[in-house]
Design a protein around this nucleic acid. Structure first.
Length: 153
DNA sequence: GCCAACGTTGGC
DNA sequence: GCCAACGTTGGC
C-alpha cells in the first residue's frame, strides 16, 4: 500500500469540498511531471493526506483514499480550463489524474508548524527546502507518526 | 506583498 | 547542452 500527500489551496478546493461532494473526485490540473509521475505510481486503495496550502494555517486536515488508478486528465485539452495545455491536444496521454475519495477529517488539523516541530519528520518531503510539488510520496513511518499526532490532538 | 526556490522555456 | 529569463508556488 502506498501513502501520499495531496496539496490544495482551500480557497480553490478544500477537504470540506471533497467531503461535501460525497463521491470520488478527479485530482485534475496537475501540470508538473514529477507530480504526474507520482500519480501514475498510485494504486486504488492507496491512502493520502489532504494538505491545505497558501492559507492562514497550512496544515494536514484529513485523509483521502485513491479509488481509481491514473487516466488521462481531459481538462488539459479544454481551452477554457485554467490548466489548458495545447500539447495535450496532440498527446491526450500527456497529463494524468487519479480519483480520490474522502476518508476522514481530523478534529484538529496537524499544522505545518507542528510537523516542523516533530524531529521524527525531519526528512519529510513536504518539509524539504523549496518543495512546491502538489503531490508527494509519504513513507509508512511518516504516515503512522502523523496519524498519531492527529489522534493526540 | 515579499521573496526564496524551483521547473520550464528558449536563444545561442 | 548551457544558462538566463520567466512564471509559479507557498510560507511568512
Amino acid at each position: 500500500m502506498g501513502y501520499w500527500l495531496f496539496k490544495s489551496e482551500p480557497s480553490s478546493f478544500s477537504l470540506e469540498d471533497l467531503m461535501a461532494r460525497g463521491a470520488p473526485e478527479p485530482w485534475s490540473g496537475v501540470r508538473n511531471f514529477q507530480a504526474r509521475n507520482f500519480m501514475r505510481a498510485m494504486r486504488p486503495g492507496d491512502l493520502g493526506f489532504f494538505y491545505h496550502s497558501s492559507c492562514v494555517e497550512p496544515a494536514i486536515v484529513g485523509e483521502v483514499e485513491v479509488t481509481r488508478a491514473f487516466y488521462p486528465d481531459h481538462t488539459a485539452r479544454d481551452p477554457d480550463d485554467h490548466h489548458y495545455d495545447p500539447r495535450a491536444i496532440a498527446n491526450p496521454e500527456l497529463w494524468s489524474m487519479v480519483d480520490v475519495a474522502f476518508r476522514e477529517r481530523y478534529p484538529v488539523p496537524v499544522t505545518l508548524a507542528r510537523l516542523k516541530g516533530c524531529p521524527a519528520l525531519a526528512g519529510m518531503r513536504l518539509l524539504a527546502r523549496g518543495n512546491r510539488l502538489s503531490v508527494l510520496p509519504v513513507t509508512e513511518d511518516e504516515w503512522q507518526i502523523i496519524q498519531g499526532l492527529a489522534r493526540a490532538s
